Simulated scan of single mutants.
Amino acid sequence: MPTTHLLYLHGFRSSPQSFKAQQMADYVAAHHPSVHWWCPQLPPSPREAAQLLLAGTADWPRATTAVMGSSLGGFYASWFAQQRRCPSVLLNPAVFPARDLARYIGEQTAWHDPAEHFFFQPEFIDELQALDTHGLPAAAPELAFIAKGDEVLDWREMVARYPTAQIALQEGGEHALSDFARHIPRISAFLALP
């Protein structure tokens, strides 16, 4: 089935202004203008983020929805894919965010606007654990782009987390996937963008 509705989820401290989100939005607008695109600003609370995503996609057609996510957005994308039974594209996805983000409890700055601050609350760790779909079989096809050179997340954990996914494993690279543009045609084909 072609994807008619595409959700993009940014990472921790990131925003819809992220490099990859902008590139994907521009590509969809230029080459697949009939696709409904949504890249919301996610609240710091994982529980509130999940509620926002379910409410914002409540009227989307189940059979032709897909989700993409980068880093923490990849973790959310896996959760969303389980809820909607839809295909997912994961870009250096966070695998154990409850473990990894515990050291970020406290005041944080937004990556794209350092003047913008938010507080990462201790209870957000429990909220992340509540959204963890680790161990569940994939709800639908998955495509994961994983860089061995990721300086933030362990590529081995990412590969192990998605045993049935199509995996595009990069030698080198980095967490930001600065060569993201070259992967977009494969993503387009995987999602059957009309």
Score class of each variant (00 low, 15 high):
Asp113Tyr: 12
Pro114Leu: 12
Pro114Arg: 11
Pro114Ser: 14
Glu116Val: 14
Glu116Gly: 08
His117Leu: 11
His117Tyr: 03
Phe118Asp: 08
Phe119Val: 15
Gln121Gly: 01
Gln121Trp: 12
Gln121Leu: 13
Pro122Cys: 13
Glu123Ala: 11
Glu123Val: 13
Glu123Pro: 00
Phe124His: 13
Phe124Ser: 03
Ile125Lys: 05
Ile125Val: 06
Ile125His: 04
Asp126Cys: 11
Glu127Gly: 02
Gln129Gly: 11
Gln129His: 08
Ala130Pro: 03
Asp132Asn: 01
His134Ser: 15
His134Val: 01
His134Phe: 09
His134Ala: 15
Leu136Ile: 02
Leu136Val: 05
Ala139Met: 02
Ala139His: 00
Ala140Leu: 12
Ala140Glu: 00
Ala140Pro: 14
Pro141His: 06
Pro141Phe: 05
Pro141Glu: 03
Glu142Ser: 14
Leu143Ile: 12
Leu143Gln: 11
Phe145Trp: 09
Ile146His: 01
Ala147Asp: 04
Ala147Arg: 04
Gly149Cys: 05
Glu151Gln: 04
Val152Ser: 03
Trp155Pro: 08
Trp155Met: 03
Arg156Pro: 03
Arg156Leu: 12
Glu157Cys: 15
Met158Trp: 10
Val159Met: 08
Ala160Val: 11
Arg161Glu: 10
Arg161Trp: 04
Pro163Gly: 14
Pro163Trp: 10
Pro163Ile: 13
